[in-house]
Design a protein around this nucleic acid. Structure first.
Lengths: 363, 363
DNA sequence: CGGAGATGTGCATTCGAATGCACACGATCA
DNA sequence: TGATCGTGTGCATTCGAATGCACATCTCCG
């Protein structure tokens, strides 16, 4: 009836995980030696290490990360906070962040925040698990949550978002330049009247793209572009485009702050209004999501490198976790124009090499 | 120079998190009382509880989940394993799983597995953090990993995947019925020659849809449908459709095992082959992803309820975590046809109420 | 030869919350 | 009156790995 010392008899049926003490006993050393073997700190002789590793393998031992966290005061967990935007671009970011986090020796705790809500309600979880750092993508950091992080000294890096007041690091695309590039591209295509479809009002992503777009438009001598909100959704983009075209002095060049909205806009223009996108009206998106390349759209867009952004964000975060007193940095990554079919080629090249093959335009 | 007792002087600048002992001292009670107040077990008088809560609030105390895990032997963490498919449907599932996990009082540790890799390399992480359970979506569970989970007694629930040998629980759409429904819908639309575009060979999702489709096609007296692999990608679907149409005896009704492939197929048919989808050829997808409703596609599809699937999967998992000796269950959720524009309306209703308004067909 | 330094080992303590146990108090009932 | 039960509290221990310290060795060099 007496509970036999675990690990002796039935090798497989061990219910509870093996501990370092059991490995120590099996290897004929102290628990410290086992710990040193796995944590790779302190001195362990080759001989001992071998014995410990053999015993560990035999028993199926994996150090308990929870116990380790308790004593080291590092959970090696990074909270990844993401709004519940169901776009392929957001998954893309997510997977890449996740991979970078793992590569840096951490785990990703995913916090999904409804896009309508603020992050505040989710902070207790983050704090309870004593995460070593937080990556925030496509979600809002309230000032209250920001103060919490600062008080508790939890490093934060924002992806493609900035909080004006806070001294947090961020990694973004060069959104201002993206806007400038869009304005320039549309102007070169001969567009006379420009329009901007914004995402969500509070996001720096949308705001910066707008600022760049408006500034460059002005520099190029264009009238102040028209403007509609598109809420970063397909439907929002659809409606925005339809509304814009109903104005007197409707635009012939539309820059959307995201590809999804641009696709909505393209569909409104071609199916609702019967216009030829890339001829009657030019549309340019931003991000270069996977869908932008689909034959149905062949969307001209300003490409953002999600992999680079994710990797850089995790790098920055880990650096801040390591040296705690680092000054926050704001980095921005280059963007580039991807020419496809929704913007007329530049006038100068109208009969040049660019207009060669008679590929079908989107109708 | 002596380190002053923390928490007395500067309230805000506390670097290290507050512990239950500090709260106990501040409230003039023992650490046990603090623990009982927060774990909501054992006896605590109203009076004490109030005092503890007040002190906790004052000091900004949150119980350390890591320390708690160590003693309770429950991490309250669920690993969510997902292949890196960058589709809106996968985010959708992910967010919903995440929400359900949180609602059940757990946290989600996200494990992103490249779709080409097996889960094996990621098991050590899962084991190290002593997760209480695993949810696997759109990823493969190798037999080795399966054995690991069984040995360590870690409950697993698969979403939309099944591992034939393993005794693990799973929650899927009724994929066989989805296939049957697709066959029926195409037959009713008057299609003579059917074809199936599969996803990935190893996935039960694709296999079951295929089985149902072929079975029902046979019952309806159709010739054995043609078949191509589409790898669950847009490009795969595009190529599959193009290839299928080049065959002698090309199909006029195509069922794709996912919407993304169906969209690829639609684009190949209309742009590459110049066919009218919904007239010359009918296409039906599966899942009802957000993009399926876009004007550019208006894809007829078999809808799968991702929210229900996610919620059910988490329910099942939590149940298994609570009572450990539960028999594995395999559940399947109903699917339903969403008629849009890529399948001709049933012949019987050709001049009936369904063919009313002259809305544009996809060209 | 003797001391400095590098290397290797184990003991005992630590991290922070949970909990079994002993104990104290008050109410209830025989 | 005293036995019993329901509450409420604190002490001491526990979870599992990391680590400071004391204590070996062993090597090297003056």
């Amino acid at each position: 009836m007496a509970r036999k010392k675990r690990g002796s008899g039935d090798a497989k049926a061990s219910r509870k995980p093996v501990t370092s003490y059991e490995v120590a006993e099996a290897a004929g050393v102290s628990q410290s030696a086992v710990s040193r073997t796995f944590s790779e700190r302190g001195y362990v002789s080759q001989e001992t290490r071998k014995r410990v590793q053999a015993a560990a393998r035999r028993l199926g031992f994996k150090p308990n990360a929870i116990a380790r966290s308790l004593i080291t005061q590092r959970s090696r967990i990074i909270a990844v906070v993401m709004a519940d935007l169901h776009y392929s671009f957001s998954v893309s970011i997510l997977h890449q962040v996740c991979r970078a986090v793992r590569a840096a020796g951490y785990q990703a705790l995913l916090i999904s925040v409804p896009s309508s809500e603020e992050i505040d309600d989710y902070m207790p979880d983050v704090i309870a698990y004593r995460v070593d750092g937080i990556i925030i993508t496509s979600a809002l950091l309230s000032t209250k949550a920001a103060r919490l992080c600062r008080d508790r000294d939890i490093p934060v890096v924002l992806i493609n978002r900035q909080v004006t007041d806070s001294g947090f690091s961020s990694v973004s695309a060069d959104n201002v330049f993206a806007g400038r590039l869009a304005a320039e591209t549309l102007a070169e295509a001969g567009c006379r009247r420009l329009a901007f479809v914004a995402g969500l009002r509070e996001t720096s992503t949308s705001l910066d793209r707008e600022a760049g777009f408006f500034a460059r438009a002005a520099e190029l001598g264009k009238k102040r572009p028209l403007r509609r909100d598109g809420f970063f959704t397909y439907d929002g983009g659809y409606r925005a485009a339809r509304d814009l075209m109903r104005l007197k002095g409707s635009p012939d060049g539309i820059f959307c702050a995201s590809d999804i909205m641009a696709m909505g806009a393209v569909d409104a223009l071609r199916y609702d209004l019967g216009l030829k996108v890339g001829e009657d009206v030019s549309v340019i998106g931003c991000i270069d999501a996977a869908e932008a390349a689909w034959k149905s759209f062949e969307l001209t867009t300003i490409a953002v490198d999600s992999a680079a952004m994710s990797a850089r964000a995790v790098d920055l975060l880990v650096e801040q976790i390591d040296k705690h007193d680092m000054a926050p940095r704001r980095e921005s990554l280059p963007v580039r124009l991807v020419r496809r079919k929704t913007v007329r080629p530049p006038k100068s090249a109208a009969s040049g090499p660019r207009a060669r093959r008679g590929e079908p335009t989107i109708a």
